[in-house]
Design a protein around this nucleic acid. Structure first.
Lengths: 183, 183
DNA sequence: GGAACCATGTAAAGTGTTACATGATTTT
DNA sequence: AAAATCATGTAACACTTTACATGGTTCC
């Protein structure tokens, strides 16, 4: 179970609530790692039972009490151990969009084109987000908190995201043209 | 559950056993869709109960009887319906390797480099496989079976795979150099 | 006035992996 | 002699998603 490690990674940067963790993920690792709140809350409880994190409750009015989690020494050890172990296999992903395209030979060309144009929009938006929203956010965060070594990693990962999305967009344009001309 | 649709997609091309389906997936959609045998066998039974497929048993000696599945009219309808529905959201994937890199700020640079070089090997191998194994396999299959429209889709998807792997490899080389020079 | 945000969680259902169980044939 | 291929499946476990439940505040 690797939600654990993702949460430890974020909690190693600063103490946070489950809600904060979800937001952090959505704003950074979203494209290659994500988790839902109903997965995060039980995971944090389990992690506390295992001694990887500890929590403090901050009472609030009109809202549920805020529960701030903090990584423990044991948690930091577990994180380091996990980080030091290299990934030795290619992890196959899942893409419904590609699976559909793969089997779309029997579909009418204009139906395929419609699907591809929807994908093009989505990936173009993501590309813009990575360039105009995430890139400055990483830069700001590094400048503010002075997390230079961490920031270098974030920027590297973001750069891969940008390159992959650019590749995807270029391929979609190519695929659309291919199908348009041969239809 | 989309194992169902993947299986329907393959069975629409020709009748097959569960074992065949697994092999077909491994040889084609593996990078963006996969399933294990212990997922495939129960799925086929469920699909038969739902009337999406039907099966014939071919007795064999020394081996378990071969059970060949064939798509039904209802199965073909379900497949078409699914194919015609466009994918309207970006599906976030999961990459343990990227998640680790994202949190590797505290790791020693040569440890990070070791991880990245392992990844480089894996992705270079995959790139070779796509170019030298999959590309001719697609071409052969199209020539043999004359599945020209399907083949065009397969080739398009393969091309994306190749472009993405090439991008990934280039980025890994860039990341390795970055860390080597700044370490 | 409604949507989105903050903030917690539970329960049920769905999906996927790993281990187990069998056993002949073919390749290394 | 060991490993891989062919060929089927079950059982237990692990993980994820969706729906439910609550309720005040802030933005449009």
């Amino acid at each position: 179970m690797s939600v654990t490690h993702a949460l430890l990674g974020f909690l190693d940067l600063s103490p946070m609530t489950g809600y904060d963790l979800k937001r952090s993920m959505d704003e950074s690792t979203q494209a290659f790692w994500h988790a839902s709140l109903s997965q995060i809350y039980p995971a944090l409880q389990r992690m506390q039972a295992e001694g990887l994190v500890e929590s403090e409750t901050h009472p609030q009015e009109g809202k549920p009490d805020k529960r701030v989690y903090r990584i423990t020494g044991a948690g930091r050890s577990a994180l380091t151990e996990w980080l030091e172990e290299p990934v030795r296999t290619l992890e196959p992903g899942k893409s419904t969009a590609l699976l559909k395209l793969f089997f779309s030979g029997r579909l009418a060309p204009d139906r395929i084109l419609r699907h591809l144009r929807i994908q093009l929009d989505l990936h173009q938006e993501e590309l813009v987000r990575l360039r105009d929203v995430i890139a400055p956010a990483v830069a700001r965060h590094v400048a503010d908190a002075g997390l230079t070594r961490e920031g270098r990693m974030w920027e590297l990962v973001r750069e891969l995201g940008e390159r992959c999305e650019a590749t995807y967009v270029a391929w979609l344009e190519h695929a659309i043209q291919e199908i348009e001309t041969r239809a």
